[in-house]
Amino acid sequence: MGEIDELQKKAREIRKHIIKMLGEAGSGHPGGSLSAADIVAALYFHEMRLDPDRPEWPERDRFILSKGHAAPVLYAALAERGFFPVEELMTLRKLGSRLQGHPDMRKLPGVEMSTGSLGQGLSAANGMALAGRLDERNYRVYVMLGDGELDEGMVWEAAMAAAHYKLDNLAAFVDHNGFQIDGPIAEVMSPEPVSDKWRAFGWHVININGHDIGQILGALAEAKNIKGKPTMIVAETIKGKGVSFMENQVGWHGVAPKPDEVQRALAELG
């Protein structure tokens, strides 16, 4: 089996975990977790230099999920990668769990930054990239933003700063799934043209299909070779990807599947 097939399989496992853990939790955000699953799988099972036994290893690559409400996709990847037992996924959002509703770096190994309040992850990623340069470490920093999250003004402060400080050890993704809580981004608050905006802010911009593993790996490889500026990978995705009745349905932004819906979704995911 080729690497792309392996990564597709991992993404499918991650999607199944997302459905199961949200079903068990009874609340949470399936749509934006499913749309990000292929990118997160590529990062955690191909791209990033990590050691689950040493989550604080100074040379590790970092990933920040700025769109923290998609916590299930991060938790599923961390568990599959061996940062904590897979069974623990079923404690999501429960009292005493290390798997908080939004990622908490002080509770769960592998979480690089506590997120959930939108717009703050890129700034933290910039700080980690600056520190890596100061310490002459060659780790890379990855961050994922939502397209609705681009409404936050702080994102653009950070966009300006990353280009100003020429942070070529940083690559960001926009999970461009087209929806925010109140509806399609085009209707609620359009961030378009997304790619032109990042380009205008001084970033190298790559456009990909965010569900095509080959394109994701290609973009990550390209980003590593870009010098003197940060890279933004604008990934066209489908909200709820992989579960037919959730795809492109804004109602599945922040509602957990009921037991019968969990079964239907898992049957589709195989």
Binding site: E112, M113, S123
Partner: peptide, 12 residues
Amino acid sequence: NMIGTAAGLAAA
């Protein structure tokens, strides 16, 4: 952004 960047620097 200054405060957020500082958070990242501190985390590293």
